[in-house]
């Protein structure tokens, strides 16, 4: 019976998330519908990039969310490490695949924009591109580490350390375009002196960002609920074996 109190909170969480999930999913669909319309139809082409600017409405939210997801994953990891709360471990663990997908999407769309605009898909010497690829590998390494250990508590501790160490890459990614000469353009939105994106493009970008955020919340809740249920199944199987 000793381990059971730890499932008290996850049970409450499951009930709460079951109530939030339909709303989060509905919000995701609505925001993506509006965002896609604005990105593809309701926004002007750029003076220089022409219509390739439309790639930005995927690329930039994906890249921002890749960073935000990593920070959240590190926060959950730290909470799990300090308070040994299984729900925090589960949350951190399930941030990783979503964050890795955002990172991959940012890398792919970046290459698809770079090819016609810069004249190259990928440049190894560029600090922004390279540090972003490292982010992808950090996510993959984090996910792999969870698979190495049988014991979820040990796995959570090892993975948490990697997540926290990898945190150093986040400011490097953000400031890479400022600290060093890069092919990648400097920040256009979160910069001193305000955004350098025309409002006609900034609004669609923010709608897409919130669509990505709603998507993230939905999928993270889905995955946490799934993992809580899976752990419950394992505990039940153990009880059954003992009986």
């Amino acid at each position: 019976m000793s381990g059971w109190h730890r499932f008290a909170n996850p049970t409450r969480f499951s009930r709460l998330s079951a109530r939030i999930l339909p709303w989060a999913l509905a919000l995701t669909i609505v925001l993506f519908a509006v965002g896609l319309y604005l990105a593809l139809v309701g926004s002007p082409p750029d003076a220089r990039q022409k219509d390739t600017v439309r790639i930005m409405y995927i690329h930039v939210p994906a890249a921002w969310m890749a960073l935000a997801t990593y920070v959240l994953m590190a926060v959950f990891s730290g909470m799990g490490f300090i308070w040994k709360h299984p729900l925090a471990d589960i949350a951190a663990k399930n941030c990783a695949p979503i964050g890795a997908s955002f990172t991959l999407l940012a890398l792919i769309t970046g290459a698809l924009w770079g090819a016609p605009m810069w004249g190259t898909w990928w440049e190894w010497g560029d600090a922004r591109l390279t540090s972003f690829l490292i982010l992808f590998f950090l996510y993959l390494g984090y996910m792999a580490l969870w698979q190495v250990f049988e014991d979820p508590e040990k796995a959570a501790r090892a993975a948490a350390i990697l997540a926290l160490v990898g945190l150093i890459n986040i400011p490097v990614i953000h400031f890479s375009v400022q600290w060093w000469n890069t092919l990648h353009q400097p920040a256009s939105v979160f910069r001193r002196g305000g955004p350098t994106i025309d409002p006609a493009m900034l609004w669609p970008l923010f709608v897409m960002l919130f669509a990505f955020k709603a998507y993230f919340v939905s999928v993270l809740l889905l995955r946490i609920r799934a993992e809580v249920a899976e752990r419950r199944v394992r505990a039940l199987q153990m009880m059954q074996a003992e009986a």
């Binding site: 896609l36 593809l40 082409p45 022409k50 219509d51 390739t52 439309r54 790639i55 995927i58 690329h59 994906a62 999407l105 792919i108 769309t109 698809l112 924009w113 090819a115 016609p116």
Partner: peptide, 15 residues
Amino acid sequence: QWEYAAYIWSSYAAA
């Protein structure tokens, strides 16, 4: 009638 349409559609398809 987009310029670079293939790159744009590929991005949205990947997403």
